[in-house]
Design a protein around this nucleic acid. Structure first.
Lengths: 107, 107
DNA sequence: CGGTTAATTAACCGATTCGCGAAATAAAGG
DNA sequence: CCTTTATTTCGCGAATCGGTTAATTAACCG
């Protein structure tokens, strides 16, 4: 499968993360619609989209001149699988106790 | 909670990702032990650890001169919660069909 | 064909990142 | 104290990143 750290790197940029969240909320969104309201220019968005595509996070579909982007479900599943692989760790009471102790020490 | 895109950014570096995976596998590991076998120097590892700590992914505990690092369970839980928030998307048969179609089109 | 719209590519630039070696800090232990 | 061990902080170059404007490609439409 796709390398997990590349997926994380793609989501690590706040602009790209918000793009993915918008795609998740709206389904398919054209590149131009992602530009509107993003605060940055079309070329910048286009490059972000290519990073997301290279990481396997999004796919695009052509409709006339527009390119409609959407999230690739299997990429999210890859992340979910990784977290679930360690579920017993972050879900255990011992783990939660460690978390509380860390909060009390604070830094 | 901690900003999700900062967590992803921290995990986006392959060195940091492998550090987290080793901490998950072994529990607590001293900084020096993380250096051995990483291929990079101690200062580099130290900086990676501070990035991971700033992102809320790891915590450290002092024991004599050593600093023992471990994963903060709540940070993994934060990621798991985000994926679960969109579970019905990547788990649905419609979504899986989209994924298959994308693979057939292939770019 | 000529014009318009949509998106990407090219070229450039400032800021950040990631590695290093050297120096500083912290805690033990003779 | 002084040395050893463990880790972090400090500069410093090389490389990457994220943004810009300008140019290019692609598809539709009169």
């Amino acid at each position: 499968m796709l390398p997990l750290s590349e997926i994380f790197a793609a989501l690590g940029d706040p602009v790209r993360f918000s793009i993915v969240e918008r795609l998740l909320a709206e389904g398919e969104v054209a590149a131009g619609d992602l530009v509107s309201g993003s605060g940055i220019t079309a070329p910048a968005i286009s490059r972000h989209l290519s990073v997301l595509r290279d990481a396997g996070l999004v796919q695009s579909r052509a409709e006339a001149q527009r390119r409609l982007y959407s999230v690739r479900p299997d990429s999210l599943q890859t992340i979910a699988r990784w977290t679930m692989d360690h579920r017993e760790f972050w879900e255990s009471s011992v783990a939660r106790l460690d978390a509380l102790m860390a909060l009390e020490e604070k830094k």
